[in-house]
């Protein structure tokens, strides 16, 4: 399906990120020949990560080493990767759609004047063309896209869309010095954990979470009531936190906490990917939503369609009855 494929690796705290392995898995799936799958990593003192990466990239790994790339800055990443992609002749450049990728990948596309397909969920082939699938209209529709023109295509892959296969083994690592000539990176002042608050949701066995569909701050009390009846904790998707209905430390998802309770009850949560990545690992998921087509029903074990104002009080009642029985 595709010839030369380059995967841009990402790492933090001395480990390759899971999405990098997912991107390599995608690359190996779409490659005509696994030997054409190579990877690039930037960093200082990351030899071990480059070796690990090489076991995934039969076409070899290029490690750009230097103090300029010890910490990520978009200025240096775009310069180094832009030059390298041009030189490598890669047809397809894949990376995981992390927040870091969201920050620099579009700029790289502009530098290369290349097609960019962000947050892709599947890659298919249609004759000799690749078809990239991504969500549009707030996840309501799948768009099947093709790219036009010569040169590299840049594609970032949605987290979880390509479950990692095993490493095929076989690549070699080549080290290169960073040439960030003339580039002055931004001045990073601090990198700190976001607000976590008093509630560590990752320890909770039962979580009841509310979304935009709950309606307003007053109605959000229903979420607390059901959590109390079940002896669970209260979480939320992004909109209730943005709107100030609940504290932001309750946010579950890519910008908040990642949880995996035994039971997760999603009330009025439509199921945006940013939320799903934070709760997908739950053992049992119950979704209650007014919209029968809400994407959350594709994640849930059990689904209930209807008005929260009617269903939640009935649930509280049923939970209490079962506890008394």
């Amino acid at each position: 399906m595709a010839k030369k494929i380059l995967v841009v690796a990402e790492h933090r705290d001395g480990a390759l990120k899971g999405i990098t392995k997912e991107a390599l898995t995608a690359a190996l799936q779409v490659a005509d020949d696994a030997a054409e799958v190579s990877a690039v990593i930037l960093g200082q003192g990351v030899d071990a990560l480059a070796d690990e990466l090489a076991s995934w990239a039969p076409g070899g790994v290029v490690l750009f080493e230097g103090s300029e790339v010890e910490q990520y800055t978009p200025e240096v990443y775009v310069k180094v990767l832009g030059d390298f992609i041009k030189e490598s002749g890669a047809e397809l450049v894949l990376t995981g759609n992390s927040y870091q990728a969201i920050d620099y990948f579009p700029r790289l596309a502009a530098v290369l004047d290349a097609p960019l397909v962000p947050d892709c969920t599947a890659i298919e082939s249609d004759g000799d063309k690749l078809v990239f699938v991504r969500k549009v209209m707030n996840g309501k529709l799948d768009a099947r896209c093709t790219v036009n023109g010569e040169g590299p295509t840049l594609v970032s892959l949605q987290q979880g869309a390509f479950p990692p296969s095993g490493a095929p083994g076989g690549g070699a690592v080549e080290k290169k010095a960073v040439d960030a000539g003339g580039i002055e990176p931004r001045k990073i002042l601090s990198i700190e954990p976001g607000e976590t608050g008093e509630v560590d949701l990752s320890e909770a066995e039962i979580i009841v979470a509310g979304g935009r569909g709950v309606g307003d701050e007053e109605k959000f009390k229903l979420v607390f009531d059901l959590a109390e009846a079940l002896g669970g904790a209260v979480g939320a998707s992004r909109p209730p936190c943005d709107s100030g209905w609940v504290e932001s430390f309750r946010q579950i998802g890519s910008s908040g906490q990642v949880v995996a309770p035994k039971l997760y009850i999603a009330l009025g949560i439509s199921g945006a990917i940013q939320h799903l990545v934070g709760m997908r690992g739950s053992q049992c998921i119950v979704a209650v939503n007014r919209d029968p087509n809400a994407p959350i029903f594709q994640e849930a074990t059990y689904g209930l369609v209807g008005d929260l104002a009617e269903i939640v009080p009935a649930l509280i009642e049923a939970v209490k009855e079962s506890q008394e029985a």
Binding site: L116, D142, A143, C145
Partner: peptide
């Protein structure tokens, strides 16, 4: 550079 071929 990118064409939406279909929506579903």
């Amino acid at each position: 550079k990118v064409t939406i071929e279909s929506l579903a």
